[in-house]
Nucleic acid binder design. Sequence first.
DNA 1: GCAGTTCTTGACCGGACGGTCAAGAACTCA
DNA 2: TGAGTTCTTGACCGTCCGGTCAAGAACTGC
Lengths: 208, 208
Amino acid sequence: MSTAADTRKLTPRGRDRRQSLLDFAIRRFAENGYHPTSVADIVDGVGVGKGVFYWYFPSKDDLLREILRDSIYDLRKTQQAAIDGVDGPLAKLEAGVRASMAWSMTHPDILRLVAFAWTEQTFAEALRKGDQILLADTARHIKAAIAEGDIAPGDPELLAIAVNGVTRQLSSPETGTVSGDGTVTIDEAQIQERIELGVRVVLHGIRG
Amino acid sequence: MSTAADTRKLTPRGRDRRQSLLDFAIRRFAENGYHPTSVADIVDGVGVGKGVFYWYFPSKDDLLREILRDSIYDLRKTQQAAIDGVDGPLAKLEAGVRASMAWSMTHPDILRLVAFAWTEQTFAEALRKGDQILLADTARHIKAAIAEGDIAPGDPELLAIAVNGVTRQLSSPETGTVSGDGTVTIDEAQIQERIELGVRVVLHGIRG
DNA sequence: GCAGTTCTTGACCGGACGGTCAAGAACTCA
DNA sequence: TGAGTTCTTGACCGTCCGGTCAAGAACTGC
């Protein structure tokens, strides 16, 4: 009763329903665009009444924000796990690049949503903080590598942005191969190839 | 009468009006988002009646498509002019990187629109072709550099994507410094610094 | 000054959208 | 079984949006 939709206590059944709405929304947003996808589209796709959506989410905007928040958190967690236990700044950097590329290429829908979110202030704010953290992480390793004399001096912040560019673009769903039905995909072999090339370009690129 | 709005013969006054609508729309789309910006917003901003918009443009969609088409053409023209007369694949590559970064950083609004356009099929199609051309250009120079033994072998297509990533990210308005009023900007000194770093990272990156 | 064209106005239209809500179905637990 | 809670329904609401159009103003060339 008047409990906020985002604080609600859910039964297992409720959690399932919520998750299927989330999953369907992510797919639709990614393939159709956020604005062109209406709440009615989502509930119709899942096969429920409109009220169900507002039982589980406060608004359409909040749904997207939640997707972004969760995704950033998941990416960061994955990256941290990959870096943990690796020694040396360059090795950490490489592990981070591998992890973020692998994650990105297995979450193409999310990447599309993030790309959209950057184009509207309301959502971009939700990304800025997480982006800063990931960038600062990379910059820290670069700075350490410079301090240890592993690579030539240079602005670590800007180098981190460049590194980010390489991994982002190589992982971007838009640069995959276009299938007959118009869908753009990157298969498993391509994923490995791209990761290896990404690592190579990044390590040589910052070495200048 | 009943001439299509995009084939219309315009007087100088008409061309001015059209241009101010275009300019205002670009700025609004970039800062506010495409969908959240209504045609009413645009005509109100320019201070004219709604019908004026549809006298000069067939639809809101067409307006964006025209902006994208013109921008891609302008970028490509600029890049070509910069590369022309430069000798050697690596020098051509460098000239291309410099030109595209300089262009991108002086057209931040356009970059935002392009980023948005990639997230919706209808508009993404308008970009795909131009993107392929720019990418193929870069790939050609890389291939030539490999052939001449200037850089180590590697898939030119993927290397071109990586190069693209470096230049795109370093030129991205989102990676600028946030001013007090929330606007993100990159000043002239930063532009030069970023271009130099971009060139350095690209040339070393593909050298691997 | 007149005819023809270019341009401008803003009320208006049909429809879609995000979000609400009263009503009730389906579970849970004592 | 029955009271309480979680979940579901879909008609409904106010608003806004892209786009139209009849009317007329402002130019242009003669």
